[in-house]
């Protein structure tokens, strides 16, 4: 019925950016989680989810993102989100995600805040 989420990962020095394209439902959320856990296993402790290509998300998908936040807290890492639609950003605030993950207007601002210092 709906096309699956397309996910692209860009590994950079000390930080990885995950680009989503499409609906983040349970399958989409699980795909993001798989990629995030793989990056964590590879030693990445700072992850940025760029949601520019996602216009709709549901609470099941967000619940899986909460699992990733939990994992990042366990490893003392940092997770950020950028390029959210106003509604997705509002939803994250309603749920309280902004207390545990950075929400940034764009990728440049997110990287400036998340990237490890020199």
């Amino acid at each position: 019925m709906t096309e699956g989420l397309k996910l692209t990962v860009d590994r950079r020095s000390g930080l990885a950016v995950l680009y989503t394209d499409g609906y983040i439902n349970n399958q989409g959320g699980e795909e993001i989680a798989r990629a995030a856990y793989e990056l964590i296993d590879q030693g990445y402790t700072r992850l940025l989810l760029n949601l520019h290509g996602t216009k709709i998300i549901n609470s099941i998908g967000i619940s899986i993102l909460i699992e990733i936040i939990e994992r990042m807290l366990q490893i003392d890492g940092r997770l950020g989100f950028c390029a959210l639609t106003p509604t997705i950003e509002k939803t994250f605030h309603i749920m309280g995600l902004a207390q545990y993950a950075g929400i940034f207007p764009d990728e440049a601002a997110a990287i400036a805040a998340l990237a490890p210092g020199p």
């Binding site: 609470s59 099941i60 619940s63 899986i64 939990e70 309603i94 749920m95 309280g96 995600l97 207390q99």
Partner: peptide, 17 residues
Amino acid sequence: IETKLKAERKRGWGIKI
């Protein structure tokens, strides 16, 4: 969110949203 982060079940947000 404080409770859900520690809970096994992280869902149950629909009505709040």
